[in-house]
């Protein structure tokens, strides 16, 4: 590595520390507030260190909820979020990997047409076609259901593309060897393609888990029944109350709980996460 000898070895550390302070400030204060009592921040007694109300606040948020500000218990919401994120990630991967397999390893009529149909979906984020998509979902009777929460966002051109790209790097000779070894398309998929795509699947699963967990607009639209609330979307009621009533401590505790799972996933599986991110955007 070429670096000017001796020079600039401290400056980057100083600048990076400043950067980290800014980047970490929101989360730090969120922790501080989520462990303080109402009186702490109403009287201006809010310090820069966590308070002593952690257990009380988090218990309120998780278990009992706060009906006066429209907050139902977050525990079930977390479970919903988790199920939705896993369903979206698993569903997207399953659907995409088989469609990519079909497009890569078979020649059939309308193959190109099918591919472009999938491609078009890439261009249409749910935000763009909110109202009609909502209409279709309502017509199908999927409002306030787990299916309605997940299925409409489960088709993914990105994942299909990614898998097709991965598949194109699998040498043709492996397919030929498999044909000689008496492995048909189904056996080849399970015995060769799937194991060889394992890392890509894992990396993609992380990205899609985060994507699913952080869904906001769609759950907001299709759920009116608190039974189906997800935590990221459920928090907006609190956010709106926080501006007028003193519930910042509960809002922040909820926020911390809502971001914990995806953040932990990123930090504990950093290598795979980075790989997944870079790959999906190729």
């Amino acid at each position: 590595m070429v670096r000017p000898a001796g020079a600039g070895s401290v400056l980057p550390h100083i600048l990076l520390s400043a950067a980290l302070a800014i980047m970490l400030a929101p989360i730090w204060f969120a922790i501080v507030v989520s462990t303080s009592s109402v009186s702490d921040f109403l009287t201006g007694g809010l310090g820069v260190l966590p308070g002593d109300q952690a257990i009380a606040n988090y218990r309120t948020v998780l278990v009992t909820g706060a009906s006066n500000v429209g907050l139902s218990p977050v525990g079930p919401m977390l479970l919903n979020s988790f199920m939705m994120a896993v369903a979206i990630a698993a569903g997207k991967i399953a659907i995409s990997i088989i469609s990519a397999y079909a497009v890569a390893w078979f020649r059939f009529p309308f193959r190109t047409a099918a591919f472009w149909t999938i491609f078009i979906t890439l261009m249409l984020p749910v935000e763009v076609r909110i109202l009609p998509t909502f209409g279709v979902t309502a017509d199908l009777g999927l409002l306030n259901s787990f299916a309605g929460l997940t299925i409409p966002i489960i088709a993914s051109a990105t994942a299909t593309f990614l898998f097709r790209q991965v598949f194109m790097t699998i040498p043709d000779e492996l397919t030929e060897a498999a044909r000689i070894d008496n492995a048909g398309p189904v056996r080849f998929f399970f015995d060769v393609v799937l194991p060889l795509s394992r890392t890509n699947i894992a990396a993609l699963a992380i990205i899609l888990f985060i994507y699913g967990w952080n869904q906001y607009l769609w759950p907001l639209l299709v759920t009116t029944d608190t039974k189906y609330y997800t935590v990221v979307m459920g928090i907006q009621r609190l956010a709106q109350s926080a501006e007028s009533s003193p519930v910042w401590h509960l809002a922040m505790a909820t926020a911390i709980l809502a971001m914990l799972p995806p953040v932990l996933v990123v930090l504990s599986m950093q290598k795979l996460f980075v790989r997944g991110l870079v790959e999906t955007e190729k």
């Binding site: 929101p26 952080n214 990221v232 956010a239 930090l267």
Partner: peptide
Amino acid sequence: LLIWPYAVAPALAALM
């Protein structure tokens, strides 16, 4: 320490 905010939902970032 610099990559984790990616995992935070936009709504939560806004709230904080």
